[in-house]
Amino acid sequence: MQLIDPTQFHSSSWDGSQAPVVNLVLPCYNEEAVLHETAGRLGALLDGLKAEGLIASASAAYYVDDGSRDGTWALIETLARERSDVCGLKLSRNRGHQNALLCGLMSISGDALISLDADLQDDLSIIPDMIRAFRNGDEVVYAVRRRRDADSFFKRFTAEGYYTALAMMGVEVVFNHADYRLLGRRPLEALRSYGETHLFLRGMVPQLGYRSSIVTFDRAERFAGESKYPLSKMLSLAWRGVTSFSAAPLRVITGLGMLVSLVSVAFGLWALFISLFTSMALPGWASTVIPMYLLGGIQLLSLGVIGEYLAKVYEAGKARPRFHVEAITGGWPGANTDR
């Protein structure tokens, strides 16, 4: 098993007088059904960009296999033998989309890296615009969905509501932006210093600063295969984004505790009034059962939220590696080719 040393790459020497080396980073998990088509389209795109002089001839596409269980890695090895600008890296086990993406971002050299999904839902036609923006001085270029007409009402409502909720809690995110973006070498090196165990890159990148811009696109239907982000994983990522970048849930618990205290006092006064001035009261029931259920539910909810934050501290304290590399194919820069 082999782990690429992330300290081997340093700031880019690109000064704008020549075409930059722009590499594409694609995390892959069980993408055998779509990968051949993806590689064909990306190969044609790279050839066109090189012929136009927008990128240097050393630019390439890098596929990070996130422990796939199908023939994804074998296909990547075949593609790497067919084209010199195709490289692959295989993680030793499935570590999740965010860790696989970070592995690629931290392991690949180049003046700029563009991260995108391998399922062809990200519009490749905007990549030239992203590169032009980079060459004009923007070190971070976000690809943002123009609209969500293709989504179901539930997905559109929950996604847009989630971005709004994050903003209300003070989390800096780009509305309707996922992980389709260009990062120059300086923001990439700045990202290297972040040691989060629970990654939420769409919240981390805006914190880097640097000059940025937005390119809009329309997301296409998946070309083949099944989505690797079912509802459970989407909810997990959403909760990670909240708990990794905002203490608002903890503050909500404080506010909720104060509110419950006020309600309990009001309820006590009401129960006292009923008991003293009416004959409707059932002795002991209201004053015992209602506060017990109310306070018990709130305590369990509060403990759950606090436990989530403590779990993150526990995971971060162990400082375990976020990924391990099992195999490399193609001309991966800086890697030991004795595999």
Rank of each mutant, 00 (worst) to 15 (best):
Q2W: 11
Q2G: 09
D5T: 03
D15H: 03
Q18M: 14
A19C: 06
P20V: 05
V21P: 00
E32N: 07
A51R: 11
G53H: 05
G53D: 09
L54F: 03
D70C: 05
T72E: 01
T72V: 04
L75C: 04
E77D: 01
S92Q: 14
R93E: 11
G104I: 06
G104C: 05
M106G: 02
S107I: 01
G110W: 03
S115M: 04
D119Y: 09
D122A: 15
M130S: 02
A133H: 08
G137N: 07
G137Q: 07
G137V: 01
V140H: 01
V141G: 03
Y142M: 08
Y142C: 06
V144K: 14
R145E: 12
R148Q: 08
D151G: 01
S152H: 08
F153M: 06
R156I: 09
T158E: 10
A159S: 12
Y162S: 07
Y162F: 15
L166E: 01
E172H: 05
E172P: 11
V174D: 00
V174W: 08
N176C: 13
A178K: 12
L183G: 04
R192N: 04
E196A: 13
M204F: 00
S212W: 10
S213D: 12
F217R: 09
A224R: 10
P230E: 08
L231R: 10
W239D: 11
T243P: 01
S244E: 13
S246R: 02
S246N: 09
V252F: 12
T254V: 15
G257S: 12
M258H: 07
V260G: 00
S264F: 10
S264L: 15
S264Q: 10
S264I: 06
A266H: 10
L276A: 06
A281P: 03
G284N: 12
S287W: 11
V289A: 13
L301I: 12
G304L: 10
V305A: 04
I306L: 03
K312E: 14
V313T: 12
Y314F: 12
G317R: 07
A319F: 01
R322G: 14
F323P: 02
H324G: 03
V325C: 02
E326T: 00
I328H: 00
W332S: 05
D338L: 02
